[in-house]
Amino acid sequence: MKCPECDADLSIPVDAAVGEIISCGDCGADYEISKKDGSTIEIKEAETVGEDWGE
């Protein structure tokens, strides 16, 4: 899969789960895995860190 931002190859671990965040090694853009069906994976742009994020 290619990075939608910079077109580099995205490295997605085989055990990556829906909701997990992956980062592009080239441009640093963050993506959330939105769908995973066997080897078919869909991603969407990850939310940016919010002011209320944390524990």
């Binding site: 789960a17 829906v18 909701g19 997990e20 965040i21 959330e32 990850a46 939310e47």
Partner: peptide, 10 residues
């Protein structure tokens, strides 16, 4: 329930 799947939830 999560909104960003982190190490902890896994």
């Amino acid at each position: 329930v999560f909104d960003r799947l982190r190490t902890e939830e896994k």
